[in-house]
């Protein structure tokens, strides 16, 4: 294929534009100066140590892990049966429901955050932890339904019917035959939903409260008062974590299959 110079240059520029800010963050996390600075003077791992010594960050990190994990597991428990019903049976208004389940992924985050704030905090007056959990459950659900749904769409349901004819009850056939064959989709949806929930700012921002703060929110609070490279260090750690997760997905399943 003929190379097109102009296009290559544009592609390089876009890549640089995306990559340079990240690169700068990585570099600043190693600077000795207590304010964020680029280029850096000196080299230190102190800020990484500081991440682990800053209680508010560590606590909210654990909270975020907890919330995201629980929310994603709940979303799996609800989302897999929902996706199954949508794929398997001609449920009335199936297409409308499919687009409805996608809607949280299309509506601006602030709007969802605000709506959930209205509903969960003002109307239901749920405790903060439960509220946060419910919010994250809701934003995770579309990922589960979509990704598991697309796995199910590719599944030949006659394998389920064959299992019935061989003597399986419906539940047993679902567990023994359907689930093992959508494993990849379930795992992928779990990863995507988890990462999305963990990184989500608007919903966490609206639903966090005294003593219960998700990591992105604490991070922003921290920046307001201390503009030091700890934030950069934490960002680098999060990026590395995400990249490792994505790498695992890619290696075990292949991202191409998921989209």
């Amino acid at each position: 294929m003929r190379k097109h110079r102009g296009l290559s240059i544009i592609a390089m520029l876009v890549f640089a534009f995306l990559f340079i800010p990240l690169f700068i963050i990585v570099v600043t996390s190693f600077g000795e100066n207590p304010t964020i600075q680029f280029p850096i003077q000196g080299f230190t791992f102190d800020w990484y140590v500081n991440v682990f010594e800053t209680n508010s960050l560590i606590e909210s990190f654990y909270l975020s892990i907890q919330i995201s994990l629980l929310a994603t597991i709940l979303a799996l428990l609800v989302g897999i049966p929902a996706a199954y019903a949508l794929a398997r049976y001609s449920v009335k208004g199936r297409n409308i429901m499919k687009s409805f389940f996608l809607s949280p992924a299309m509506i601006p985050g602030v709007v969802i955050g605000y709506a959930l704030f209205q509903f969960i905090v003002i109307q239901l007056q749920l405790p903060i932890f439960q509220g946060l959990l419910l919010g994250h459950f809701l934003i995770s659900l579309p990922y589960i339904i979509r990704v598991v749904g697309s796995s199910l769409d590719q599944l030949d349901f006659s394998i389920e019917e064959v299992a019935w004819t061989l003597g399986s009850t419906r539940l047993r056939a679902f567990v023994r035959v359907v689930l093992p064959n959508i494993q990849a989709g379930i795992f992928a949806s779990f990863m995507l939903a988890f990462i999305n929930s963990f990184n989500n700012i608007p919903v966490s921002q609206f639903l966090s409260g005294p003593g219960v703060t998700a990591l992105p929110t604490s991070l922003m609070n921290y920046i307001e008062y201390n503009y030091d490279p700890t934030v950069s260090a934490l960002s680098v750690l999060l990026m590395v974590g995400t990249v490792v997760l994505m790498f695992i997905i890619e290696k075990t399943l292949g991202l191409a299959k998921i989209s």
Binding site: D156, S158, I159, E161, V162, A163, W164, T165, L166, G167, S168, T169, R170, V177, P180, N181
Partner: peptide, 19 residues
């Protein structure tokens, strides 16, 4: 119900369990 009938069935797509 189907699972209590004890009939063997062969489908057009064979429907083998891939796993």
């Amino acid at each position: 119900p189907v699972h209590k009938r004890n009939f063997g069935m062969v489908f057009q797509s064979y429907a083998l369990f891939p796993h």
